[in-house]
């Protein structure tokens, strides 16, 4: 059975409660209005890292902007740290830390200056702010660069400083919008370690948006998969993967024209679940990969259909995504990129 699309976690403190958010951006020149959020609903229990996973343009950043009081929804309600994001705006701002998608430090200021100013804005005294800044710089391995202007920092260092900026005032809820986009693999792994430490050691509630399946799998205890402004599935990564019984078999054909014929051939085999065709690639859910692969290959050989590759894998988040949205994550990303290009 599919998990309910907006599961309410009964009992316990909820750090974030989002109910039926709708946000439409007005039509721009020659472009139709965009419905960025279309009834978005999800909860985050206190102390949990929740990943909002979805392709670019799914509405993740819009959701974060509404939850951080930067933007306003057309309808629906959202509470963060028990406070309404519209009616208790100022209190919400004090309770949260926000790490925007783009680097949020002042490049002309040093690491310390950035952090101290941020602390002061949130009401820390000068000395508290200085102490807290030094502590964060130390923790993020930036102590050596503390007195250097941020414009001399590497991308990874800037991103760590961004996270530190979100933490100066000891928020109870931290929003990380695409924290590792544009980072090299090493810097990414580094930041992952930091985020893991944060949630484990400080009991911080973290809402993380990402379009990296791997990142969601690694960091998020709970996932909400977002597509076209709605949560289409939620649960822990393990739960979501377990929902997809069996394995995934992927058949890459030498020639895309025979894909439809292969589709009907394979669907007649026993133990085969849903099949999705994308170009010359067929992906099928099967009960057991070990028995399905020889059967599939047998049929294809009988019909003399050339095969480029066959792979079998345990379910991944990509399969989960495919299951709920009917398209692979890569295809969704490509589609949204193409849309962006058309709009530009």
């Amino acid at each position: 059975m599919a998990p309910p699309t907006h599961a309410r976690t009964g009992g316990g403190d909820l750090a974030i409660e989002v109910t039926d958010l709708v946000k439409t951006y007005p039509a721009a020149r020659k472009k139709p209005p965009v419905r960025a959020l279309d009834g978005l609903t999800f909860d985050v229990p206190a102390g949990v890292v929740l990943g909002l996973l979805g392709p670019n343009g799914a509405g993740k950043s819009t959701a974060v902007k509404i939850l951080t009081t930067l933007s306003r929804a057309d309808s629906g309600t959202a509470r963060v740290a028990g406070l309404d994001v519209v009616n208790d705006q100022q209190a919400v701002r004090l309770a949260i830390g926000y790490v925007p998608q783009k680097s949020s430090s002042d490049p002309m200021a040093t690491g310390t200056e950035n952090l101290v100013l941020s602390g002061r804005i949130y009401g820390l005294s000068k000395s508290d702010s200085v102490r807290r800044s030094a502590e964060l710089l130390e923790r993020f391995g930036l102590a050596d660069a503390a007195d250097r202007q941020v414009r001399t920092y590497s991308g990874g260092m800037q991103r760590k400083l961004d996270v530190a900026l979100g933490l100066v005032h000891r928020p109870t809820v931290l929003f990380l919008d695409e924290p590792t986009t544009g980072l090299d693999p090493e810097a990414r792994a580094d930041l992952w370690t930091e985020v893991e430490r944060l949630s484990a050691a400080e009991g911080l509630t973290v809402l993380l948006t990402t379009h990296y399946l791997e990142e969601a799998d690694r960091l998020a205890a709970q996932l909400a998969i977002v597509d076209h402004g709605k949560v289409v599935a939620s649960g822990s990564p393990e739960e979501l993967k377990a929902e997809l019984r069996g394995d995934s078999v992927q058949v890459e054909l030498a020639d895309a024209t025979s894909a439809n014929r292969v589709h009907s051939l394979i669907s007649e085999l026993p133990g085969i679940g849903e099949i999705v065709v994308e170009g010359n690639v067929l992906r099928a859910r099967v009960d057991r990969g070990a028995t399905a692969v020889p059967a599939v290959l047998g049929v294809l050989e009988e019909q003399e259909i050339a095969v480029a590759a066959v792979t079998v894998a345990r379910p991944t988040l990509d399969d989960v995504y495919l299951r709920y949205t009917g398209r692979t994550f890569r295809a969704a990303e490509r589609a949204s990129d193409a849309e962006k290009e058309r709009a530009a």
Binding site: Y98, I121, Y122
Partner: peptide
């Protein structure tokens, strides 16, 4: 163009 403005606007300033 950076995220500085957005960070400031979500702060109590």
């Amino acid at each position: 163009e950076r995220g500085v403005m957005d960070r400031m606007l979500t702060s109590p300033v």
